[in-house]
Design a protein around this nucleic acid. Structure first.
Length: 465
RNA sequence: UCCUACUUAGCUCAGUUGGUUAGAGCAUCUGACUGUUAAUCAGAGGGUCGCUGGUUCAAGUCCAGCAGUGGGAGCCA
């Protein structure tokens, strides 16, 4: 007899052709019933919904039924029928069940009842089997796909920037060292320093903190590029918004000024949120019901709202006139604190805000200096609840101005000669920004902790899974 | 890294002024129930009270140190 092919539950629930024999495989969410009939809710991760398996007494060996508990993996063959129970449209009348893997109910940690997200973090190897993580991971996938689709459809090329980098002056934070030297007995130079000339690359290397500098090289050849890859920061940050390993999207565009850059960022974010609403509504509805009943409303709001665009100077003005007593007092030149950003986004405007033209002292060396000589063409996109979701700028394309900034900030140029050469040979106005992928997923899912929107979070003191 | 709160059964949590045998709900196990919807009902088992030390006749409870986790801050995406 020909082997019956497995049908995904997502397809079965759409099936209109009833009374046919199908095979379904998945993991048991709940089992209940009496001595005449047993009901099994089966989920295969293809969709948030389960399919109900109905086992009439006598159809399946009782010994096999006994092996089936929450968490067990089954292959079920049976007839797809319209359900005459209330909770579902269709169900499967089981004819044959093979138990692929049992799950001992005494030790299997996932119960039918809800768990706290903190507990689920301790069992990151099993949490994808929960409704919540299934929904988050499917949305995460959809967003990754939508990012590639958006850029591809708009003429951007996907540039793969290196994970291992030889420059340690990218200025975005502390780095993880990459080495093959024997840490117990490293080679030394004459004055006792570790001799990285004997290391794998013949120099000291680290994991990247940003693909931007290499991204600029790509943009100054292909015009429109983006990167989408893992990024590493060895900062001892313990917050619900930071990871030591996270994914970042960094478009870089030749011939874009700061306004073009803002237009792109706004259009891009709206496209992604809209994509989630169009393609992930089942999962969003689940999250909306279980975690945040204003989620879908808020997502729709983002798509329809025009983001506020405001200079740093205007922002400081609003904060000073607000009469609010902040823990950190505001004055022109200070870096804006979380409380300041939150006031502007959540209290004053109640919508996303793009802040521009920050004082040069509080921003990175590569940002283009404005004519006033005091501010740079930076732009931060601030979202409600999340804070800074995008940071970007028009880049300084003038060789002399850039060299002077690098000198002022005492950045070692030895490892960055290649970056500076782009300003020597056919320099061009260009802009770009970085979007933290997990922060986007936080916003789209309504989750509150960044550790719950990446399958295997890397944070200080945590690399178990 | 700083501030702050928390850590008691598999999970979520009570636990009074320091005082006899540390409780509940859910989960698990056993049984009942003719179609259930995180089924229901009855019964049973289940604890090194985060770790180390201290105070005391007596510590889950008070004190100190350490660890882990949550929240806030800084760094940023």
């Amino acid at each position: 007899m020909e082997k019956l092919k497995r049908t995904k539950i997502s397809d079965l629930l759409k099936e209109t052709d009833k009374d046919k024999v199908v095979n379904v495989k998945g993991w048991v969410r709940t089992k209940r019933g009496n001595k005449n009939v047993t009901f099994i809710a089966l989920n295969d991760g293809s969709i948030i919904h389960n399919i109900q398996i109905v086992v009439e007494a006598g159809n399946i060996d009782e010994q096999i039924l006994k092996l089936i508990n929450t968490g067990a993996c089954l292959s079920v063959t049976g007839t797809l029928v319209e359900s005459f129970g209330k909770g579902q449209g269709v169900e499967i009348q089981a004819k044959e069940i093979e138990v692929y893997g049992q799950a001992d109910p005494e030790t299997y940690p996932l119960q039918k009842k809800g768990h706290t997200l903190e507990f689920l973090r301790e069992i990151a190897h099993l949490r994808p089997r929960t409704n919540t993580f299934g929904a988050v991971l499917r949305i995460r996938h959809a967003m990754a796909y939508a990012i590639h689709k958006y850029f591809n459809d708009n003429g951007f090329y996907y540039l793969h920037t290196p994970i291992i980098t030889g420059s340690d002056a990218e200025g975005a934070g502390a780095m993880f060292r990459v080495t093959t030297l024997d840490m117990d007995n490293p080679p030394r130079t004459e004055n006792g320093q570790i001799n990285y000339e004997e290391d794998f690359f013949g120099k000291s290397t680290n994991l990247t903190v940003s693909g931007q500098l290499e991204g600029e090289l790509g943009a100054l050849a292909l015009s429109l590029i983006y990167t989408f890859g893992p990024t590493f920061r060895a900062e001892n940050s313990n917050t619900p918004r930071h990871l030591a390993e996270f994914w970042m999207i960094e478009p870089e565009m030749a011939f874009y000024d700061i306004t073009d850059n803002m237009d792109l960022a706004e259009d891009f974010l709206k496209y992604l949120v809209n994509y989630a609403l169009d393609n992930c509504i089942d999962d969003l509805q689940f999250l909306n019901k279980m975690y945040d009943t204003t989620l879908i409303e808020r997502l729709k709001g983002i798509v329809e709202t025009k983001f506020v665009r405001l200079s740093y100077t205007e922002g400081v003005d609003i904060l000073m006139k607000s009469g609010v007593k902040f823990e950190y007092p505001v004055k022109w030149g200070c870096d804006l604190q979380a409380e300041h950003e939150r006031y502007l986004v959540e209290k004053h405007f109640k919508k996303p805000v793009i802040l521009t033209d920050y004082p040069k002292e509080i921003k990175a060396f590569y940002m283009k200096l404005n004519d006033d000589g005091k501010t740079v063409r930076a732009m931060d996109v601030l979202f409600p609840n999340i804070g800074e979701i995008i940071g970007g700028s028009q880049r300084e394309e003038n060789f002399e101005t850039l060299s002077k900034r690098i000198e002022e900030l005492n950045i070692p140029t030895k490892d960055m000669w290649w970056y500076l050469e782009t300003r020597k040979f056919g320099t061009a106005p260009h802009s770009g920004f970085g979007l933290g992928f997990e922060r986007l997923i936080l916003f789209v899912t309504g989750m509150l902790n960044i550790r719950d929107v990446i399958p295997f979070p890397r944070t200080p003191k945590n690399a178990e899974f």
